[in-house]
């Protein structure tokens, strides 16, 4: 049963990955301008360009080109960046790790904030806390990351001088952990805000639904009181939904992280992608898109598998 489910999901993931690879490959094909011209510059002679096309296999049929590209990609060979002249992989991997750091911090903030505020709001629905949090959710949930980022920078970096606004250059080997954490706070909060707001709203709704069920009434009639009612009786029934909500947010969180990186000059894959697009560095764009898509797909696979597992464990009728 479980093996079957995993196989089914994996097959679907493989299909999605195939689609991703086709699109990423297509980026190269449909990129405006000629690759050889882009690589060699506008002054290059026609014969030099032709030679390069021959070397790169650009004169071969498109299907053959796709498989050649796929083969290289699977071996980790993404080509060379036309901006930095480094290997693309060498460009992308450290940036990707920086993004993972930022996204993880944002995820932790979004989960802690979203789940606790959501539960607290549901526990006293209609009360003062609930109304306050609903209003905040409205405000922060609707703010685009770059706007919220600027607001946070204005207050916490420029006015109060609690945290630095930018200046993050190297995560690994740069400052110590404290320095990194300090640089992390504002971008992580910015990237987390929209997701935290959605998590609050949905966790609240899930808890309200569960708190309205008969077995909660029965537990109250048994003398169970507020904390135990929430944590022991309601939470296990909300858990699969909460995980699902968080899983859905991961995608948005990746998106939010990419935008945030540009605002805070965070040396992540979003910033790299932004620069690569401006510089028409197609190979880097391809690698960035592939990394982002791959993390997206794998995260969703993990979320689905965890949900399957929990649902099975619950043995819900």
């Amino acid at each position: 049963m479980i093996v079957h489910a995993i196989l089914g999901r994996t097959a679907r993931v493989a299909f999605v990955l195939f689609g991703v690879s086709v699109i990423v490959f297509g980026l190269l094909q449909f990129a405006p301008g000629d690759v050889a011209t882009a690589l060699l510059g506008p002054q290059a002679s026609d014969s030099a360009k032709e030679l390069l096309r021959e070397q790169l296999g650009l004169n071969k049929p498109i299907v053959t080109q796709y498989f050649l590209w796929l083969g290289n990609t699977l071996q980790g060979d993404f080509g060379v960046s036309i901006i930095s002249r480094n290997t693309v992989l060498g460009e992308v991997v450290p940036r990707f790790l920086n993004s993972v750091l930022l996204a993880s911090a944002a995820l932790v903030i979004a989960i802690i904030l979203g789940v606790t505020v959501g539960i607290a709001s549901a526990a006293r629905a209609g009360g003062f806390f609930d109304r306050t949090s609903s209003a905040s959710v409205q405000v922060f949930g609707a703010m685009p990351p770059f706007w919220l980022g600027l607001v946070l920078v204005y207050f916490f970096a420029l006015q109060f001088r609690w945290f630095p606004a930018t200046g993050m250059t190297k995560t690994f080997g740069g400052g110590d952990a404290w320095d990194i954490a300090n640089h992390l706070v504002l971008p992580a909060v910015t990237a987390a805000a929209a997701s935290a707001a959605v998590i609050v709203r949905m966790v609240r709704a899930v808890f309200l639904e569960v708190l309205g069920s008969d077995y909660i009434l029965v537990a109250r009639a048994r003398g169970v009181r507020s904390w135990r009612l929430l944590m022991h009786h309601a939470l296990p029934n909300c858990m699969p939904h909460v995980l699902n909500i968080i899983g859905l947010q991961l995608g948005y969180l990746i998106g939010g992280t990419l935008f945030t990186e540009v605002v805070f000059a965070w040396p992540g894959i979003g910033q790299l992608l932004y620069k690569a697009i401006l510089g028409r560095d197609v190979a880097v764009v391809q690698a960035c898109v592939l990394f982002i898509a791959l993390s997206f797909v794998l995260i969703n696979l993990a979320v689905d598998l965890i949900n399957d597992f929990l649902a099975r464990k619950m043995r819900q009728s």
């Binding site: 008969d214 077995y215 029965v218 537990a219 029934n237 043995r315």
Partner: peptide
């Protein structure tokens, strides 16, 4: 004791 035994027990406990 409530009317509906199908919904009165917590499915997660």
């Amino acid at each position: 004791i409530f009317q509906n035994p199908l919904t009165s027990l917590n499915p997660a406990l």
